[in-house]
Design a protein around this nucleic acid. Structure first.
Lengths: 280, 280
DNA sequence: TCTTGACTCTCAAGTAGCTTGAGGGTTTAT
DNA sequence: ATAAACCCTCAAGCTACTTGAGAGTCAAGA
């Protein structure tokens, strides 16, 4: 008969942890003194504790371990658990690798005192999005603003049904840029309204659904003519973190006034580039 | 002014999480209605939230993020945090890799219905250990038992001071095997008692300290003549998990009776092999 | 036999970052 | 006016322990 402290030293497991395992029913002492409550263990319990520690080392929860120990799993079930765990660890591994790359990229940015470090780029999943838009070749980027009126008119009678309410909140209009390379003049862009339900095409206005994708995203706060910095920051991030651009990028207007004043210093835009991981 | 639900949709962060961030002071709404308690956000808060999400994506705690956001860290401090985080992720990565190998090894063991799967091998850190031992060439493994009497006598008058109390508990004697390869006859082994304090050498008995090392360990429960299975299991594990043996292995007697009866089916032994990771 | 120090007990609270739920008030569209 | 959707606060739950308070127990030496 071994008292808890001695047992704790033998197995290198802290006393409170042994008590906790007792409480969970994972490892009950062979004997508990009725009057004092003292726990007494036996050397023959070590294989069981060893099994607990081994499974814990594999990353299983105590609950799962209890099942494995007490319900006599078939090899088939055990195989299933291990395969599941294998998948989980693989995913963790991938996440850790990405994080490592990201931290390294940030460190390098600091080392060379990069001004673009002011922008924070994150990944997010974008849902499919129904939009009404007019796409055309524009003389320069800022000319896209003038298209919104035409889109709005084309929606016409469906405005109340199809448009999102409270336009004071922002987030209902966006710009899409289709050029694969950077151009200063004659750019291929579109002005769009988000829709809650489809409306018929009219004039140059087309209704279509933007597909769900992973997006690299950042937020620009300031007048529109300085938005280039945000684009530069996000492009740098995409490159440094091992992604590639997978479609047209979007500028979501999060600013609250209508009509939009592009030179307003309080202007807020979210910039999103669809991305995919470069294999290897 | 944007209500919490709208803001939640815009930033893809659940409402309770936004409330939680408010509570922590990480992201306070620009305005809170005095009478109703309604929170109102503004688009201009998005860069801050983006920064929170970016730092969270890097694996920083909310507490750390609060410091970064509100205390205006110098680039130097930021660099320090990132480097620390870099080290942490690297370690996680290594751990995940090890776990993956271990899970794969277990899966393969199941696939070929290996009987050795009954043994659970774990890694543990062994502390430095002071022992009194007699090392010699033995005709065969089980002959080591006869050495214990001689060691005990050599400790002699120091018994009470140097030996661990309550020998009923087990875990005070061990066997060391020095052969690098498996031998059935003429094996180089030692019988040892653990000491609390040094005693003088006497006769063939020597006092020395076993160094601290990482140990691959398993427990054998049954008569001594079947202990070979446990050794086989641990050796297989060491190989499958990318380690190598880094010294003499130990058999710790965890059984509670003295003198030891090697053929007792209740006999309990912990087998430890010092190991080190094979560099890739 | 008594004392002392080491050991043990139970119970409760704290950790991180949310998630879930109960119970109740507010806003908005019909 | 009413119903649906939205918002509020507060509390508990999650994992695998860790820490601490307050009190009882054991073993060895005087």
């Amino acid at each position: 008969m071994i008292k808890i402290g001695e047992f704790s030293r033998m197995v290198q497991v802290p006393v409170p942890t042994l008590r906790y395992y007792d409480q969970l029913g994972l490892l009950k002492p062979v004997e508990v003194d009725r009057s004092t409550g003292y726990r007494y263990y036996s050397a023959s319990q070590m294989p069981r504790l060893h099994r607990i520690l081994a499974l814990k080392g594999l990353g299983f929860s105590l609950e799962q371990i209890a099942v494995v120990l007490d319900e006599g799993l078939t090899p088939e079930q055990m195989r299933g658990m291990l395969r599941l765990r294998h998948a989980q660890i693989s995913q963790q591994l991938a996440e850790a690798r990405n994080q490592l790359v990201e931290v390294e990229a940030r460190l390098q940015q600091i080392e060379r005192e990069d001004q673009l470090a002011a922008y924070d780029v994150i990944l997010k999943q974008a849902e499919p999005l129904l939009v009404a838009s007019i796409r055309t070749i524009l003389p320069h980027h800022s000319a896209v603003g003038s298209l919104f009126g035409e889109v709005y008119e084309a929606i016409g009678a469906h405005t109340n049904v199809a448009l999102w309410p409270n336009p004071g909140a922002g987030g209902q209009t966006l710009v899409l840029w289709y050029d694969c390379e950077f151009k200063e003049y004659d750019v291929d862009g579109a002005a769009a309204f988000m829709l809650r339900c489809p409306v018929p095409d009219r004039g140059r206005m087309r209704v279509h659904e933007l597909p769900a994708t992973t997006m690299a995203s950042t937020v620009h706060h300031g007048p529109y003519n300085t938005i280039g910095d945000a684009h530069a920051a996000i492009l740098t991030w995409i490159d440094a973190n091992g992604y590639r651009i997978a479609g047209p990028d979007r500028e979501l207007n999060l600013y609250h006034t209508m009509p939009i004043r592009l030179d307003d210093p309080a202007y807020v835009t979210e910039i999103q580039y669809p991305v995919e991981k470069v294999d290897q």
